[in-house]
Write a protein that binds this DNA or RNA. Structure first.
Lengths: 344, 344
DNA sequence: ACGTGTCACTGACACGTGTAACTATCTCGC
DNA sequence: GCGAGATAGTTACACGTGTCAGTGACACGT
């Protein structure tokens, strides 16, 4: 609109985006030469003076290659696609994620997190396939179906890796066996003499994927014993916790696995305020081994979870890309270990 | 280097990825017709039977358009690029981020988070520019220079928006004035009669961007009063907090702004263990208003921060894209308010 | 004089898509 | 019988890049 001294009717932005042809023109060489120089193609020899002229021209024009055109021509990209997560994730996951990105970059992949909020199943798979990634690493928020995997593979993806709570047909699946977390926590409570054991189920959406298997694991742990398990819906709010604590005696519970440390802290405070002694009347166990859990009195017992290493996962991706014919393998993860402190 | 068994020169995957030409062949029409049908181009009329044949052919082949080719032809994309964050961020930020993504998708943009871990300044800008995004929203981890902004704009980006702690030349800048957080917290302490006020500075890397301005704000708050400010380096570990608490009497502090609620909880526990009464001997104020802070005894006083709304930011991006000639505006953010509880 | 080889490049094509310009066929008014 | 207009398509080009095959120019051995 009001740029001072621009009057070219062509481009609203004023000047066009420079291409390799512009660089070639300015350097007085052919476009092919430009490509050879800027990509350091070893099969072709270009004299040193020419190389310099090309580099200087590129610098002067501020030339940046067009990634889309490049990968169109090449027929493939080294892009690894990660559907962007929309679950509020903790620091544990955050650290894993950075490590993973860093490792992939080391292996010369381009990591792209693609926001597919609001898309589901097959539709999401199609949106991802449009980008022609060489690999897709789904972190479990979007449930990938066998159909979706087929779409991705047909679009040229050489590897589809899922990191979630269950196996997906046709993919390299890293299954985080959340059940073992619930099992370990509950077994610990049973061993320390508890008999009626509550299991907190967060009411927040998006966590069912974790809480379900954890509850199943808890049930497994009491099989063959005289202990029983009681599911306890809970919202992450003080009122909800207070309401639950008020019904505690009537529920007759003497132990609780509280999903994770945050819910455990919330519930433990509510119990104490309601006059329930921890651990005497009721033992409380969380999960994730957060630092904050150690600050409470009594100190919170927890389940420490060994997350998969980011570097390890990156190597798996790389191997899967290089050998796309190797059959997809499923691997179980999530070694977990009870850390007993004072609340149990 | 050492890939073991690569000897198929043509296509390792066996069958090729279907293109619109394949669809055209199967449907017995021209490629243009396929494009018109699949894009619902309104300017051209295609009969209903033909439309059906094309759609069925596309379905049968599992055709998915090639995003790179498409945006190459179109000359632009509706991609908004977000440099991926590698700061361990809290739930507050996480929520904002999801809202932002969702709102942008509503406006028909494609959100891509690009992992530029390990790249810096101009190099990072160049990597982003290769993707030819229509807008770049930098969330502050990577410091964008004026030079970098120039590269991006020359590559066709119609808007560069920075959300950070300081303004960047040539961009629409949303400046989160972290100083006001420190100022509000410290002013509150001064008003309640405290005179020697500690300000926690996390030693974790990546947080300096926030802690520095907060300290400055604290200093501003004591100007013209007889109160003083003492910086307190602290690692997010129990030992570090215990060490600091052990020196408390010798430091002679009677109030502390602990950077945020998590550090505040850590420090408050250490102080109590060291025999320092809160709030009688020392008042403690955190920031972020986490639920967990309300669980402690005494309940933690804090600074509630009104984050920018994701939807609001998305609309700003959209406006900037549609009117690229409008001059970049800088806006200050971060209204913050002290929530007094029991620890101060 | 001639084949062979090396050096330093250039010409031309292909990747997959969107769309402006064109064509062929049919209908209708007069 | 014939131009005008609608209908239903098709042909051809452009986007920016990588790379194969070719092309002069020159050197060298026989």
């Amino acid at each position: 609109m009001s740029q001072p001294t621009e009057h070219s009717p062509e481009r609203p932005t004023g000047r066009a985006v420079p291409t390799s042809a512009d660089v070639a023109r300015l350097a007085g060489v052919s476009r092919a030469t430009v490509s050879y120089v800027l990509n350091n193609t070893s099969a072709v020899r270009i004299s040193e003076p020419t190389r310099r002229r090309v580099r200087e021209a590129a610098e002067e024009l501020g030339y940046v290659p067009h990634a889309a055109a490049r990968s169109l021509r090449a027929g493939h990209s080294r892009m690894v696609l990660l559907p962007a997560s929309h679950v509020p994730v903790g620091p544990l996951y955050s650290q894993f994620f950075n490590e993973f990105q860093w490792a992939l970059r080391r292996l010369d992949y381009t990591v792209v997190q693609y926001g597919s909020v609001g898309l589901e199943g097959e539709e999401a798979a199609r949106a991802w396939a449009e980008l022609r990634p060489v690999a897709v690493v789904s972190l479990g928020e979007v449930q990938l179906t066998g159909q979706g995997v087929e779409i991705l593979k047909r679009s040229g993806a050489r590897a589809v890796i899922t990191l979630g709570t269950q196996e997906v047909e046709g993919t390299h699946a890293l299954v985080m066996d959340q059940g073992r977390v619930g099992e370990a926590a509950t077994a610990h409570l049973v061993e320390s003499g508890r008999r009626r054991i509550g299991v907190v189920i967060p009411e927040e959406p998006g966590l069912a994927m974790f809480s379900g298997p954890r509850l199943d694991g808890a049930r497994r742990a009491v099989e063959g014993t005289d202990a029983t398990v009681v599911p306890l819906p809970l919202r992450y709010e003080e009122e909800s916790a207070a309401g639950l604590a008020a019904r505690w005696r009537e529920l007759g519970l003497d132990g609780v696995f509280a999903y994770n440390d945050e819910y455990a802290m919330l519930l433990m405070r509510a119990l104490q305020d309601a006059g329930v002694a921890v651990p005497e009347d009721t033992a409380v166990v969380g999960a994730d081994d957060l630092l904050l859990g150690r600050l409470l009195r009594p100190r919170l017992s927890t389940v420490r979870i060994d997350m998969v290493l980011g570097r390890e996962l990156a190597e798996l991706v790389d191997r899967a890309v290089r050998e796309p014919e190797s059959p997809p393998r499923t691997r179980a993860l999530l070694a977990s270990e009870v850390v007993r402190r004072e609340s149990s």
